[in-house]
Amino acid sequence: MILVLRALGVGDLATGVPALRALRAAFPSQTLTLAAPGWLTPLIALIGGVDRVLPVDGLTPFRVEAPSLAVNLHGSGPQSHRLLLRQHPEKLWAFGGPVGPEWSSQEHEVRRWCRLLEFYGVDTDPSALGLAIPSDPVPHGVTIVHPGAKSPSRRWPPERYAAVARELHAAGHDVIVTGSAAERDVAAKVVADAGLVPAAVPDTSLSSLAALIAHARLLISGDTGVSHLATAYGTPSVTLFGPMSPALWGPPPDRLRHRVIWHGTESTRGDRPGPDPHPALLEITVDEVLNLSREETS
């Protein structure tokens, strides 16, 4: 059994897809077990090749049968290393230590995990980001505005999202606003301020959200999980970056249907505590977003 640890969120899972596919190809006869949050199971099913999801909550302790190989796709350690070593694997592939490659904070997240596997002799394809499209019945051709993000520093002000939604709606876009259960209030505020009908905030499961993005005309969001789903499906997108550089977390530069806006620098990079958006995110204007949105859908 191959045990892989990636106990993070949607965007983290999406950026780990090429590495997971490389492991599947390298060990076709082994059971591939992914330790990840259970709520991600519908999305993990769209990757293909994962035989078992081991539901975990972050780096909380768990126990499995001793794997032949444990692969740390979670982080640089040491906590994640120790968690996997407690499973008594025959081998551990991870950054650092006496055997593994050196961790770099200056490489793209997709490339990082592919490099880890390449160090151990596994062939990878960093462009293998695609996901299967769920069969959930969803509207096609909508423009999605997604104002939420896990970190407050990655949330562009909702009134600016509303201004974008209002202008695109006036230009003929069928605009809907998405958000998690915790983001329903901000999504409803964007809908109200934009003058959209209340039904523009749909109830979506993770599977139906993926289907909605796969069939969308355009996605506008911050640097959060849904932007990685747009990359996976080739859906035109405009992503607003604040604390992180798109060179580390953005779409591959050769995918021209995905546009990014970032006014930060390496010296300003990094999430900041508190309730306010990152200063680089606040420098992004409504007109900038609208101009790129029009270019992507013209």
Rank of each mutant, 00 (worst) to 15 (best):
S208A: 13
S208V: 02
P236F: 03
I213Q: 04
L206N: 07
G250S: 01
I176S: 06
V190N: 14
L212D: 07
P202C: 05
I213P: 05
A194V: 14
L256N: 10
A194W: 02
L212S: 05
A194H: 09
T239Q: 14
P251G: 04
G234Y: 02
G234R: 00
V190H: 06
T235N: 06
L240M: 14
G234Q: 03
V226D: 12
A200M: 08
I213A: 05
V175S: 01
L240I: 04
V260E: 15
A216H: 13
L229K: 11
S207A: 15
R184S: 09
A182K: 14
S207C: 04
T224G: 10
D174G: 03
P243I: 07
V190L: 12
V260S: 15
S221K: 14
S245W: 00
L218R: 11
T204H: 06
L229A: 10
L196K: 05
D223N: 10
D185P: 00
H258V: 07
L256V: 14
A211G: 14
G225S: 10
G225M: 13
I220Q: 12
R259G: 02
A200V: 08
L212Y: 04
V201L: 12
V190E: 09
P202W: 03
T204K: 04
T239S: 13
A171K: 13
P252H: 05
S180V: 03
V190Y: 06
A247Q: 14
D203R: 11
A171W: 02
L219I: 12
D193Y: 05
L229C: 08
I213E: 07
I176C: 11
S227M: 15
H258G: 03
H258A: 10
T235P: 02
G225K: 06
A192R: 15
A192C: 06
G242H: 03
P202F: 03
A199W: 01
D193T: 12
L218P: 12
I213H: 04
A200L: 08
V186M: 15
S237N: 11
H263Q: 09
D193K: 09
S207M: 02
A181N: 13
S221V: 11
W249D: 02
V260Y: 12
D185E: 15
V186E: 15
I213T: 13
P198V: 09
A216F: 10
A214L: 05
G242K: 03
F241G: 08
